[in-house]
Computed example of a mutant assay.
Amino acid sequence: MPARRRLRDVLARRSPDDLELGEGGVWRRLHDRFRRAVDRYHQLLEGVPDGALRDALEGCGARLAICLDDVRAACVAEQASSPSSGLEVPGGAAGEHHARLSRAATLAAQAAEAVTMARVRARTDSTVLSDASAAEAADRAVAQVEALVHT
C-alpha cells in the first residue's frame, strides 16, 4: 500500500507538461531545448539599452515566443501520435518533423547569439543604439525559425 500511495503522490505532483510531453523522450527534450533557447534570448535582451536596437530585438523575441507555443503544440501532438520515452528519433514523417523542429531550436539559439553580439556592439559603439541593422542577424534567424515551425 505505501508504494501505491507514493506513486499516486508522484503522479499528482506532475505538471501538465509531464503528462502531455512525456518525461524523457525525444519530444520532451526537443521542446525543452527550444524553450531554453527562447528563454536565453529574452535573458540577453534584458541587457540591451532602450532604443531602436532593443525595439527591433523585442519584436524578434515576441515572434520567438509565438513559435515556442507552436513548437509545444507540435511536440504534444507528436508525443500523442508517436510516443517516445527514449533517445530514438522516430522514422517517417515524425522523424522529418523532429529534424525540422530540431533545426528550428538551433536557429533560436543562434538568434540568442545575435542578441549577445548586438549587446557587445551597443556597449562599444553608441551609434548602434539607434541603428536597427545590428538586429538583422536575429531577424534572419527568427524568420528561418518561423519557416521551419510553421511548415
Rank of each mutant, 00 (worst) to 15 (best):
M1R: 10
A3T: 14
A3G: 13
R4N: 14
D9H: 09
R13F: 06
R13M: 05
R14Y: 08
R14D: 05
R14Q: 07
S15Q: 10
S15A: 11
D17Y: 02
L19S: 03
E20I: 02
L21T: 01
E23Y: 13
E23V: 14
G24C: 13
G24I: 12
G25K: 05
R29F: 08
L30M: 13
L30E: 09
L30I: 12
H31Q: 14
D32I: 02
D32A: 04
R33M: 10
F34Y: 14
F34P: 12
F34W: 14
R35N: 11
R35W: 11
R35E: 12
R36Q: 07
D39I: 03
R40I: 03
H42C: 08
Q43G: 03
L44F: 01
P49T: 08
P49G: 10
A52N: 09
L53A: 02
R54H: 11
R54F: 07
R54P: 05
D55M: 13
D55C: 12
L57S: 02
L57N: 02
L57W: 04
E58I: 15
E58A: 15
G61K: 03
G61D: 06
A62E: 15
R63I: 14
A65F: 14
I66D: 07
I66A: 07
C67R: 08
D69T: 03
D69Q: 05
D70E: 01
R72G: 00
A73Q: 00
A73M: 02
C75P: 02
E78F: 05
E78M: 01
E78G: 02
E78P: 04
S82T: 12
P83N: 13
P83Q: 13
P83R: 13
S85L: 14
S85E: 15
G86A: 12
L87S: 15
L87M: 15
V89F: 11
P90V: 01
P90T: 04
G91F: 04
G92E: 03
G95K: 00
E96I: 04
H97L: 15
H98V: 06
H98W: 08
A99F: 10
R100D: 10
L101P: 09
L101I: 13
S102H: 05
A104R: 04
T106S: 12
T106A: 11
L107P: 01
L107Y: 01
A108C: 12
A108V: 11
A111G: 03
E113S: 11
A114C: 04
V115S: 03
V115D: 02
T116A: 12
A118I: 04
A118P: 03
R119D: 07
R119M: 05
V120I: 10
V120L: 10
R121V: 06
R121C: 04
A122N: 11
A122F: 09
R123H: 11
T124P: 12
T124D: 14
D125E: 05
D125Y: 01
D125W: 00
T127K: 06
T127Q: 07
T127V: 09
S130R: 07
D131S: 04
A132E: 06
A132L: 10
A134N: 00
A134Q: 01
A135W: 01
A137V: 04
A137D: 01
D139A: 08
R140V: 10
A141P: 07
A141W: 06
A141I: 08
V142R: 09
A143V: 04
A143H: 03
A143D: 07
Q144K: 15
Q144I: 15
Q144M: 15
E146S: 14
A147F: 05
A147N: 08
A147P: 03
L148E: 00
L148M: 05
V149W: 08
H150F: 07
